[in-house]
Design a protein around this nucleic acid. Structure first.
Length: 306
DNA sequence: AAATCGGGCAACCGCGCGCAG
DNA sequence: CCTGCGCGCGGTTGCCCGATT
């Protein structure tokens, strides 16, 4: 499936770029700009796929790119944004001047995720691994559905009132950890920046509790650009979506049980379109309640870095 | 000194989305 | 409305190089 190759693979060079190729591409883009990438190889005299040219330019040749190591502040920002956005590397990279999505992605995969694991934090959900295991155990003891009932959903069923109540109570104790203090105990403490997603679960319950049709309450708050609602939505969404294993599974719950998880997805998509994610991120980062950069804790106080 | 291993990073691949015809 | 195309994204691969045995 998918679109056909953008170029004749038999006649294009692959593999590492040479200095000569770099010079040709740079010379072309500096005089003609980066318009139609498919025509760039031919015009620049390169036997490369246009896609390859674009990648080389954006990840390596583009002006103002930083090639030095990531700073402590950048590390913290990446972890914070990953907790909010997940693996949306281009959005994260947008907040890091001079960094590309590939840079951020590689740095996360090779360094930051390992750092988090070493601190006992799941790099996907940003929650303590011990809490995650406890959550999985709680889900596992849920009674099986009655005969003839719909197949079990991939996600917790939020309109199942007793189950929801128990789950909500449990998650009130759980938090999304966005910062790791290398010198502190692994368990989150009050000094660290934490994102509570139980708030969103509460919104979800209030908005469409036992049999309400749609998660409008939480979604509405998010669309207004409210930092607390938005942050809580993100935290809950990541937690459930990734525990389940794939984002596709988030929407695979029961019809009216989409609840928190689907509200999260809808909210993200709607906000991307309607208000621009950059603006949202800026608002969130400006709020000291959600990111220490606005005041409160400095990098040194957090002790980030190993 | 040679072989092996593992980390880091550049590059590739497949897919979704938006747009124009 | 449908189709094809270009772009951008996230996931993955594979090479390079330093560390270790």
């Amino acid at each position: 499936m998918g679109r056909p190759p953008c170029c004749d693979k038999a006649n294009v060079k692959k593999g590492p770029w040479t200095a000569e190729e770099d010079a040709k591409l740079l010379a072309y883009t500096s005089t003609h700009g980066t318009g139609n990438w498919t025509s760039v190889p031919q015009r620049a005299g390169l036997k490369r796929c246009g896609k390859s040219c674009r990648l080389r330019y954006t990840n390596y040749l583009r002006p103002n790119l930083k090639h030095e190591n990531f700073t402590q502040e950048e590390e913290e920002l990446i972890v914070t944004l990953h907790a909010m956005l997940g693996s949306r590397w281009s959005l994260i990279a947008n907040q890091l001047p001079g960094r590309t999505d590939n840079d951020v992605k590689n740095y996360w995969n090779t360094k930051l995720s390992k750092k988090l694991r070493q601190r006992g934090i799941d790099p996907i959900t940003h929650r303590p691994i011990a809490d995650l295991m406890q959550s999985i155990g709680t889900l596992a003891i849920r009674p099986p559905p009655a005969a003839g009932a719909a197949p079990p959903p991939c996600l917790p069923v939020f309109h199942d009132a007793p189950y929801f109540a128990a789950l909500q109570h449990q998650h009130q104790q759980q938090q999304v950890v966005t910062h790791v203090d290398a010198d502190a105990p692994a368990s989150p403490d009050s000094q660290h920046l934490q994102l509570n997603w139980s708030d969103f679960l509460a919104d979800d319950a209030a908005g469409h509790g036992a049999d309400a049709p749609a998660p409008q309450a939480a979604l509405g708050q998010y669309q207004e650009g409210s930092a607390p609602a938005a942050t809580a939505v993100v935290g809950g969404g990541r937690a459930f979506g990734d525990v389940d294993g794939a984002s596709a599974g988030v929407g695979a719950g029961t019809d009216d049980g989409a609840g928190a998880a689907s509200a999260f997805i809808d909210a993200i998509l709607d906000c991307d379109k309607e208000m621009g994610v950059d603006q949202l991120i800026a608002e969130m980062l400006a709020d000291p309640a959600y990111y220490g950069g606005g005041g409160g804790s400095s990098s040194s106080e957090l002790g980030w870095g190993c």
